[in-house]
Computed example of a mutant assay.
Amino acid sequence: MVKEWEPGLERDLLRGPRAGKLAVLVAGGAVIFVVYTISLFAGMAVAGVGYRVSPVLTVVFVIWGSLGCVVVGLNLYMHIRVIPREVRAGYTTGYRIHKEVDYVDPDTGHVLRVAGEEFLKTDERRRREALVAEAVDKRRAAGDGRS
């Protein structure tokens, strides 16, 4: 039986990086990497030169390769270290992974989907985020210092 979700559910989050935050960095870095790759190869095609002839293209290529390595490294770190650590603690901050543990907002620690519940569609996640924000505001107005 799946426990019923309610806006007041909270989890204590582990210290350190959170999968939900790293996923945003990885996705953003991947988009930048793809755009950069297209621009790099388009620039080479227009210029009609290779890397040995142009020191500028060599520097651009080094930056491109470095960015790719950073994105891959962050992704591996997230999947090898951060996500398993969160799952062992009984929750995840990753949006659509590990249905068997609670899905928790990476900033506040509020539970947005309880363990065993189906993955949330975007509109339901936003609705729950709004309900959680409302519950937090009411608690603050009542004088409870928790967030």
Rank of each mutant, 00 (worst) to 15 (best):
A89I: 04
E117S: 05
V71R: 04
T122F: 15
E86R: 10
G68C: 02
L25S: 07
V132Q: 00
L40H: 14
R52A: 15
E100K: 13
K99V: 08
F61N: 13
L9D: 00
A45G: 03
G50K: 12
S66F: 15
S54G: 14
L40W: 14
H110F: 15
G109I: 12
V53A: 15
A42D: 14
M44D: 08
S54H: 12
R85Q: 09
S147W: 12
T108K: 12
V60D: 06
I97R: 08
V132P: 00
L9I: 06
C69T: 06
D107T: 13
L9G: 00
V24Y: 15
H110S: 05
G143F: 11
V72D: 02
T122Q: 13
T122G: 05
S54V: 13
L22H: 07
F41S: 05
I80K: 11
R81S: 11
F119S: 06
A30Q: 12
H79T: 06
D123Q: 04
L57W: 09
K138D: 04
A27C: 03
V101L: 08
A115D: 00
K138L: 11
R18N: 13
R139L: 08
V35E: 05
Y51P: 11
L76M: 05
L74E: 01
D123N: 06
T58L: 15
V56S: 09
A115R: 01
V101A: 04
Y103T: 11
P17E: 14
K99D: 07
P84C: 07
I83C: 04
K99Q: 14
G73S: 10
P7D: 00
R125M: 15
G8V: 01
T122D: 13
P55H: 12
